[in-house]
Amino acid sequence: MSTQTPGARQEIRWRKIFGSTTVHVILILFLLLALVPFITIVLTSFKDSQQIMKGAFRLPETWHFDNYIKAWAQGRFSYFFRSSVIVVIPVVTVSTFFAILTGYAFGRMQFRFKRVIFFLFLLGIMVPLILPQIGMSIAFGTFWMYGAFAEVPRDLEDAAIVDGCNSWQVLWRVLVPIVLPAILAMMVLFFVWTWNDFLMALVLVSSEELRTLPLGLAFFQGRYTTNVPLTAAGATIVALPVIVMYILFQRHFIRGVTSGAVQG
């Protein structure tokens, strides 16, 4: 590798002197841009109404944990939380199960009207209508699992068939264990989407008790426009489960979103 042109060598030197620090500074700036807005909201959630006037980036002088208690009880976030959990669990489990089945058929089998049915699933992802998350999730999950199953080598399946497995056993005993990371990533995606979903709840839910967290927060913000710390506490409550999920499954999640998008 000693046959580098002078130009290339000069460029490497340039990158060594100028590049590394600059790149890190630029990255840190963008990292701050991404994180600081939400961090200031978390800080604000611990302040009182006087403190927020003194500077958004300051730490709270006294930490007001009672904002959370107020939001949880008086702000009815306890109800919203329960509604969200009640919605999320069936949506994630049901759509995961059926997406595995449809993805299996598309990824490993040949049949008539395959392209037509595939296109019908694609339509649901593009339409700008307010549609139930479960339907959208199954559509997306079909593409997702199709991509995951299509990558598994044929030999494994053939070996299982020689051993006398039927298609159902091949799916659950051979294929599912192999594509488990993809399934996990898909479930995290379903969780985040359903948890964050606001539109469907906005259109469907009329009674206050049944509001999900994002919907409850939206109305809460409208009612308490002047009480910023309380709204900030509410926003933190809504975001926290997703952030925890994200930290736990960060790798799966990022790889999921990117590879899923590329396949889709």
């Binding site: 967290l213 994002p214 952030i243 979103v257």
Partner: peptide, 24 residues
């Protein structure tokens, strides 16, 4: 860390994003 951090805005609920930026 950079990759994970830069991705955070994308996972927040739009309602939370709205609260954050209305305040900003």
């Amino acid at each position: 860390v950079f990759r994970a951090g830069l991705f955070v805005p994308y996972i927040l609920s739009m309602v939370v994003v709205g609260v954050v930026w209305r305040w900003i």
